[in-house]
């Protein structure tokens, strides 16, 4: 019985997913299922970084999208001069550097401040980043190419899936699994979790909390950067603040839906948000809803989940 209670979240999640899939197949909305998975994976990637920061420091990081946008911008600039692979590595390097700089200049001085102060500070970082992008490059949309050009590797339920999408999905699934393993099984992962819950005790054990913070922010920035360079080329291009404007709110929703402390939950939440958006756009019963039925339905789903299970689908209570 205790075991079942422990696994309540996973049971509910499995039931919700099964029900969702059955409903979509039965109502002829099977394409929305595929569209949701492939587009929601981008939200999931960004959500993964959000959960990482939250899990380790309790901060909602509003700058997470900008790690991705800066990476895409760098990819765009470097690709004029160097091959795509090197440009990609350079872009991820710049994202990690940005994460470290933000940690040293913004997060560390506010280490002991209330979490809400840090939340506002990260929002400030995002706004500053967007302003700098506009200042140097205007608010102009720019094209950015894919790492992998094949568009029709597979067709699943009538929807073509490109190699770039497969790369994104694969990277997301592997990283979510790896990070879950990292936090549960490695000393460094456990130290990071320990530092978020008992920073003084962690210091007394001889572990530098500040160094751990730098590692976490660098990792989160790497995840944000990966989200940018893998997801944005699939949409064709970018404008300043693209990940903050177009991806951050769905990513936050995905993170909360999956459970703010669960890395696999972030992946799952992203996919659910993508599926719900796609269904709301294509299903005839939502046609008469004015405005944005996708956004509306996503928040209805979020509300239902939080009422039934406040810690999110795969999160832990308390």
């Amino acid at each position: 019985m205790d075991r079942l209670r422990e696994r309540q979240g996973q049971v509910i999640t499995a039931a919700v997913i099964t029900l969702l899939v059955l409903v979509l197949l039965a109502t002829g909305e099977k394409e929305s299922l595929v569209i949701g998975v492939i587009t929601g994976s981008a939200y999931g990637f960004l959500a993964l970084g959000l959960v990482l920061i939250y899990k380790s420091s309790g901060v909602f990081n509003f700058a997470q999208g900008e790690f991705g946008t800066v990476a895409v911008y760098t990819l765009y600039l470097l690709h004029f001069d160097v091959p795509y692979g090197f440009a990609l590595l350079g872009a991820l390097g710049v994202a990690v550097l940005m994460g470290v700089v933000v940690e040293r200049l913004v997060v560390r001085p506010l280490f002991d401040a209330p979490r809400v102060t840090l939340l506002v500070a990260t929002a400030g970082v995002a706004l500053l980043s967007i302003a700098v992008q506009i200042w140097f490059g205007e608010a102009t949309a720019r094209p950015v190419g894919r790492a992998l050009p094949t568009l029709d590797r597979f067709t699943v339920l009538g929807v073509q899936i490109s190699d770039q999408r497969l790369l994104l999905l694969g990277a997301l699934a592997i990283l979510a699994g790896l990070l879950a393993w990292f936090f549960n099984k490695t000393n460094l992962g456990l130290a990071i979790l320990g530092s978020s819950q008992e920073p003084t005790a962690t210091e007394l054990m001889g572990i530098s909390v500040k160094r751990l913070s730098t590692i976490v922010w660098a990792l989160a920035a790497l995840l944000g950067g990966l989200a940018g360079v893998l997801a944005v080329p699939e949409t064709g291009g970018f404008a300043p603040g693209v990940l903050t404007v177009a991806f951050l709110i769905p990513a936050f929703t995905a993170a909360v839906l999956g459970g703010m402390t669960s890395l696999p939950g972030a992946f799952l939440g992203g996919v659910i948000v993508g599926v719900v958006e796609a269904v709301a756009t294509s299903a005839p019963i939502f046609e008469d809803i004015p405005g944005s039925p996708g956004t509306l339905l996503v928040f209805v789903v979020l509300l239902i989940v939080l009422v039934a299970r406040p810690q999110g689908l795969l999160g832990k209570a308390g």
């Binding site: 394409e31 587009t39 958006e277 756009t281 294509s282 405005g291």
Partner: peptide, 22 residues
Amino acid sequence: DDTINKTASEAEALAEVQKLKD
């Protein structure tokens, strides 16, 4: 004959494409 969100997300745009294609 569809309306689409004024600031449509990628999922919304792709779902619209699928409807037009179908």
